[in-house]
Design a protein around this nucleic acid. Structure first.
Lengths: 112, 112
DNA sequence: ACTTACTGTAAGCCGTGACTGACGTTCTGG
DNA sequence: CCAGAACGTCAGTCACGGCTTACAGTAAGT
């Protein structure tokens, strides 16, 4: 089996959208309700709901219903899937550089 | 500016495509030419060229022209950008689980 | 019970991007 | 010098996905 590649693929595709990434990063500050999230974004509330549904399907967020409010929080599961995939990729990349190491070291800080 | 977030965003969007991810993972085994890569994929060679251009623009691969062949190899730069962004996200996610007082909902519900 | 607040869902529109086929260019070999 | 191979680019087509408006449902407050 391909390990968690499928989960990583879904999470990767989910985070590819700028709006979704913005919601996810905003959720990083703590759990928030849908309306709260929608107020900080340029798109409409239904759009936010759809994005949250995609993030949820990707295992990136979790929702908790409290009254009429629906609080969303970050789920480390999806993030872990990406991390695992990335780690695997990183190992393969370094292995690929075994013959010719004429690249910059990957330990450098990105001060772009 | 946005630090390496923009690079991470570009790399993330590039790896969101299944075909592109397939090419990238295949490149993990070592440098290969365009025709070589195109033979292992269902899409046409021009499509592969376009995908490689996107990956190159995202800093995920590097190309080296040798004769008529054009060998592509993994560039750790783009992968590093994603890794840095993911690390930042991971820290924020853990932090998100530690505090619950950031909720600014106007509806008091501390008797939960 | 009625009203209000909060959210998810449905249908539809429209822009973005992935794919193809054709063409032009460059480099190697005879 | 000419033929062939390898690759990038261009123009066009078409499906996918994000956004909006309208609607339906549930829970809390008066």
């Amino acid at each position: 089996m391909t390990k968690g590649s499928d989960s990583a693929a879904t999470a990767l595709a989910a985070l590819a959208d700028p709006t979704r990434r913005q919601l996810f990063e905003r959720l990083r500050a703590g759990p928030r309700a849908v309306g709260e999230l929608a107020r900080g974004v340029t798109v409409s509330r239904p759009a936010v709901s759809q994005h949250l549904a995609v993030l949820k399907a990707a295992g990136l967020v979790r929702d908790t219903a409290t009254g009429t409010r629906r609080v969303y929080e970050i789920d480390p599961k999806g993030l872990g899937a990406i991390r695992a995939w990335l780690d695997d990729m990183w190992g393969g990349a370094l292995e690929s550089f075994g013959d010719e190491f004429e690249t910059e070291d990957p330990n450098k800080k990105d001060s772009e």
